[in-house]
Design a protein around this nucleic acid. Structure first.
Length: 489
RNA sequence: GUCCCCAUCGUCUAGAGGCCUAGGACAACUCCCUUUCACGGAGUAGACCGGGGUUCGAAUCCCCGUGGGGACGCCA
């Protein structure tokens, strides 16, 4: 039994999409759990749209997600790693050329001199006649020598087309997620293998690379399902055994249309910036089309590796629901050890310009208070803002609270009591409670009328975490400054 | 238009002919906890696309519709 080898083959024409990430994840999980190899191949044969920048970004995203591959283009050095390289299709042109020549020689492909205009004319005609459009090339039956003669004569740049065996037969294969799938062989016309510039086309290099790289399982998006027919034909032409295919359902936006930019964030990069943890994103996308046999909803990477299986892949398209992603993220967030959580949160705090105590104990206590209030890392910014040495930003609700008849008196009393209390930099929980009691008796105010104005004078808003936990995290001098700030309004 | 794929609560899904008066999770709502907001806990509501078969019995199998998606490129 040969070993399991999966591959993820993105084309570097933009950011890594969550759909692509899910494909990569499944390939990674499947290879890892079976002790096989996961290969990363770059499909950059579209010269117009492929950029090295995109490639770099996508590799970085994959790295952030933690989907390590045994072979492929290294994310850091951009160099090939592995025995079956090069792993960038643009660097494999001679390989494709050789294989195309072989098909040409065997009469399984031919040079086609059809121009774009002629093809367009054919298409229009087909549409008018209401029949499916398939290229019918007059060069289909030319001999190789005739074609070569024509090429030698003039400045013509032909494409190389696959000569589809015009049999009326069915191509069938067993799809890992859909079961038996059959295609009639007349579903496609002769298709291009090599463009006129010599650059090969997706269906061609895909087959050659998967075969040469000894890929055992091809998991890819559903939109490639009908490409499988062409690929099967190519495998057959070379006499190669095709790999196992599994076509994953696509990911939809809330309106049940294919997820795209207009639905909001679609790239993993955006989710990273919004404060999602990589393992939470992975957990969530894993569940879009796969379910744990234990019906577990929150899974670590390790658990995903252990529990993943092809037979639990769901064939129907799934809607990407950010509300659930948030929940999954919140669960992963609170499961993180505090030092790791701080490490994740800190960049968001720094970017927001918040200066906070360096002290590890302080960080630990603050996370204890806040971690259950965070869904995404960026939530930390608003949570921590009141703890930074900054003037308060009052919201409307806070201003309303200050208009209550007793509010001003309460804050004046709170400030006075603060002044009276010890010289330590921070208030203890007990000291705060004692002060609060004094304000209560001295002013004869209780309940909301008591603690809401105080809260406004502390954090700038009437709602939030419990004061006796919050106050010991804020320097006393800051508390006094803030009371003054509010009283000055 | 032709071919292919898909179809269970609003969403993600469990379900491989009787275990289903269809289970779980997110979201929603209610209550409890709480001197606020969250967290947490307990509940409520909510689905087998329609029609025909097959079968003693169908969410599960078959057919036909319908709906959605994909492909039909010198894109991938």
């Amino acid at each position: 039994m040969s070993s399991i080898r999966t591959r993820f083959a993105p084309s570097p024409t933009g950011y890594l999409h969550v759909g692509g990430a899910r494909t990569a994840l499944y390939c990674y999980l499947f290879a890892r759990q079976s002790g096989g190899d996961f290969i990363l191949r770059v499909e950059d044969t579209d010269e117009e749209r492929s950029t090295e920048d995109s490639m770099r970004m996508q590799l970085a995203d994959l790295q952030w997600l933690g989907y390590e591959y045994q072979e492929g283009v290294d994310a850091k050095t951009l160099r090939d790693r592995g025995l079956f390289g090069p792993y960038r299709q643009s660097q494999r042109r001679s390989i494709y050329r050789e294989h195309a020549d072989r098909l040409l020689k065997e009469g399984k492909a031919y040079y086609c001199f059809l121009t774009d205009e002629e093809i367009e004319r054919q298409r229009e005609e087909a549409v008018r006649a209401g029949r499916p459009h398939q290229v019918v090339s007059p060069y289909r039956d030319w001999s190789l020598t005739d074609a070569e003669k024509k090429m030698a004569e003039g400045d013509v740049k032909p494409t190389v087309r696959f000569r589809v065996p015009d049999l009326t037969r069915e191509y069938a294969f067993h799809d890992l997620v859909r079961g038996e799938v059959k295609f009639p062989s007349d579903m496609v016309g002769d298709f291009v293998l090599l463009r006129s510039g010599g650059m090969p086309v997706y269906n061609f290099c895909c087959v050659i690379d998967d075969a040469l790289m000894k890929i055992s399982h091809v998991l890819r998006a559903e939109e490639h399902l009908s490409n499988t027919l062409r690929q099967l034909m190519i495998y057959e032409a070379f006499g190669w055994a095709p790999p196992q295919f599994g076509h994953l359902s696509i990911i939809l936006g809330p309106d049940r249309q294919k997820l795209s930019k207009r639905h909001g964030a679609t790239s993993v990069n955006e989710y990273r910036e919004r404060g999602y943890l990589p393992e939470a994103l992975s957990n969530f996308i894993a569940l879009l089309g796969w379910s744990s046999p234990k019906s577990q909803e929150i899974l670590s990477m390790q658990e995903l590796v252990e529990q993943f299986s092809l037979d639990r892949l769901h064939p129907a398209a799934a809607v990407f629901d950010e509300a659930k992603l948030k929940w999954v993220n919140s669960q992963h967030l609170r499961a993180l050890p505090h030092d790791e959580l701080w490490h994740q949160v800190e960049p968001f705090l720094v970017r927001a310009g918040l200066k906070l105590p360096e002290d590890a104990g302080w960080r630990d206590r603050s996370l204890q208070v806040f971690k259950t209030s965070m869904e995404v890392l960026s939530d930390a910014v608003e949570l921590y803002r009141p703890l930074a040495k900054l003037p308060l930003q009052l919201n409307d609700e806070a201003r309303d609270t200050l208009k209550w008849p007793s509010s001003r008196g309460v804050i004046e009393e709170w400030r006075a009591q603060l002044q009276l209390c010890g010289s330590a930099a921070y208030l203890s929980e007990a000291e705060f409670s004692a002060i609060q009691d004094k304000v209560k008796t001295n002013r004869g105010v209780k309940g909301k009328d008591l603690f809401m104005p105080i809260r406004v004078a502390i954090v700038g808003r009437p709602h939030g975490a419990e004061l006796k936990i919050l106050v010991p995290l804020i320097e006393k001098s800051t508390l006094i400054e803030r009371a003054d700030q509010v009283l000055a309004l």
